[in-house]
Design a binder for these strands. Structure first.
Length: 573
DNA sequence: GCCGTTTTCGGCCCGACTGTTTTCAGTCG
């Protein structure tokens, strides 16, 4: 059973307990455990079999037993019992804005509402306002939410690549205003998470009202509500919500820290601060003993006051960064300027939009010393496959080019066939400088077969790297069934690099697995997988994932000049 | 339910907003 499935079961259990009226701390404990399981980076089922699952922070004896039950029987007994008392449909009702567990429970008990459909009917018939605690307004709000498309499913999140350019444009525009002192993007966009729910912008200004009014007039925004001293809330033309918050410059650091999150990071940071008599909020840090509240203009000062290193936003997920920062042991995260080359991109020979020369010129402008051209192989199946003779002609062409200043490696992104063999004969692969192997077909193989397929590909002496190793498409497609622990072990044994793919739909390996791979000693490559010149810039998303995975330049093969990289890869060892 | 050089029991972040409340519970981020 996958970590995501186990985590889902505990999130559901938490919701059921919440609806049943359990003390919030128990509910929070299950939610924390679900998060720890989701982000474990290694197989929690395996960890449980080894008796080590309580090593995960937030998983104790009770939850260990429940995981055992889940793995053995497919369900958690306490969840089954709760479902007999509380309809699971109430969980969907709690996803309607304004309706939480208490109110959903009240609707069930007073009106027998057990589904979104029941809720809809009761609201239309005007029966909600008969329930204690509900009035006209509550009924209106429910009807409005349902009319606006709320259906009880978790809200889809927006890909970072869709939201980030919008946020950066708004920040640029606000900074140009004469009243602006500081303007920064906050929230999950600043943490460069895979997806965002909305955009948060934090500002300080000499004339807050003027800045808010200027914000309201920006052409990117559709509707804006009540621009005032404290900021404004807006929606872009594509429906993305943007919150602008304006604070005095003296407290800008506190507010930026607060709104950058994550919620879990802040919660853990504050809990730890309380033990030392400090209370952290968006307004400042209160000291019990001194009876004072200090505000800080910069985040650096906030973290310093709390006795820790500055924590880069990408690490603020409560995944151990607070402890490391207190010990002064945060890693020196990889930076864009560390990258020497890009080892995965396509040209017009397969499904790219630009030629080898154009891609090389673009890469040179980015300051790279080398690139690898890695068009799709013969059985790609999505148009424009590359037969061996075509590949060899491209190789000749690359060898004859004079591209002054940048080394162009002749490579391929070869398909891994269902049995783990590659798409080209060794005689062809031997002539290439760089081989990426990826899975593009037979996604539905059982886990054992998929894992064996990948392991066999990694055992091939000419495979330098595995492209997008789990095959996920963020918000669209789950990873294929594969045992990532064994893939990481296989990569370590064979000396195969694992890729962090920069296509913003992929970002694969993800942050959690990339961190696990690096900790195991596997070397990673950070690639754009560009299918066009302008997509070379997608490297920023791969870099973002690498930083969220705590990687330093040492962990990443293509921070090295080519001759050095050539020496550390499988065939150079 | 979890956790621990202040604790193996007694804590568990902080504040804003909404609506239905005569003083606050529930929800949200």
């Amino acid at each position: 059973m996958r970590n995501a499935e186990i985590a889902d079961a505990f999130d559901e259990l938490a919701s059921l307990y919440e609806l049943d009226g359990a003390v919030v701390y128990r509910v929070v404990a299950y939610r924390n455990a679900a998060k720890a399981i989701r982000e474990a980076g290694v197989s929690v089922a395996e960890l449980t079999r080894q008796g080590r699952v309580t090593d995960l922070a937030g998983v104790g004896k009770t939850i260990e037993e429940k995981i055992h039950a889940l793995l053995d029987t497919g369900s958690i007994p306490s969840a089954d019992k709760l479902k007999a008392r509380v309809p699971a449909g109430l969980i969907e009702i709690t996803r309607i804005p304004g309706l939480g567990p208490k109110r959903a429970r009240a609707l069930y008990e007073r009106l027998g509402i057990r589904s979104i459909a029941d809720l809809h009917t009761a609201a239309e018939e005007g029966r909600l306002k008969d329930v204690a605690g509900f009035g006209e307004k509550a009924e209106e709000n429910v009807l409005a939410a349902l009319a606006a498309g709320a259906d009880g499913r978790p809200k889809a999140r927006l890909l970072l690549s869709k939201a980030l350019p919008v946020g950066e444009q708004l920040v640029r525009a606000l900074r140009e205003h004469p009243a602006a002192i500081r303007v920064e993007l906050a929230g999950s966009a600043r943490r460069l998470a895979d997806t965002v729910k909305d955009l948060d912008i934090v500002a300080s200004a000499s004339d807050p009202k003027a800045l808010a009014e200027a914000f309201a007039k920006l052409p990117e925004l559709d509707t804006v509500s009540s621009p005032g001293e404290a900021g404004a809330r807006a929606t872009t033309h594509s429906g993305l919500q943007v919150d602008l918050r304006i604070v005095p410059a003296e407290a800008f650091g506190n507010l930026l820290q607060h709104f950058t999150g994550s919620g879990r990071h802040n919660e853990a940071l504050r809990t730890e601060a309380v033990r030392r008599g400090l209370h952290v909020s968006e307004y400042g840090i209160a000291d019990d003993e001194a009876g004072t509240t200090e505000a800080f203009a910069t985040e650096e000062e906030v973290y310093e006051r709390l006795g820790m290193q500055f924590i880069p936003p990408e690490l603020r997920e409560n995944r151990g960064e607070l402890e490391s920062a207190r010990r002064d042991e945060l890693p020196a995260l990889i930076e864009l300027s560390d990258l020497r080359g890009d080892l995965h991109m396509h040209t017009t020979l397969s499904d790219g939009r630009n030629t080898v020369e154009e891609m090389a010129a673009g890469a040179r402008e980015r300051g790279y010393g080398y690139i690898a051209i890695t068009d799709h192989s013969a059985s790609h199946g999505f148009g424009n496959d590359v037969q061996p003779d075509e590949l060899l002609r491209q190789l000749e062409q690359i060898r004859s080019l004079d591209l002054g200043g940048i080394r162009v490696l002749a490579g391929t992104e070869t398909n891994v066939l269902p049995d783990g063999s590659l798409d080209y004969e060794d005689a062809v692969l031997e002539q290439l400088d760089w081989v990426v192997a990826s899975l593009h077909t037979a996604f539905r193989l059982p886990e054992q077969d998929q894992t064996a397929r990948m392991l066999r590909a990694m055992e091939h002496p000419l495979v330098d790297a595995i492209g997008h190793p789990t095959g996920r498409l963020i918000e669209r497609r789950q990873p294929y069934e594969i045992d990532v622990d064994r893939v990481i072990a296989g990569a370590l044994e064979t000396g195969t690099f694992l890729e962090i793919n920069g296509n913003p739909d992929r970002r694969d390996l993800n942050d959690v697995y990339a961190r696990a791979a690096a900790e195991a000693g596997v070397m990673l490559v950070i690639d754009s997988d560009a299918h066009g010149l302008e997509r070379l810039a997608n490297i920023r998303y791969a870099l973002a994932t690498a930083r969220r995975a705590w990687l330093t330049r040492e962990h990443v093969a293509n921070t090295r000049p080519w001759p050095e990289l050539d020496g550390v890869r499988k065939r150079g060892r």
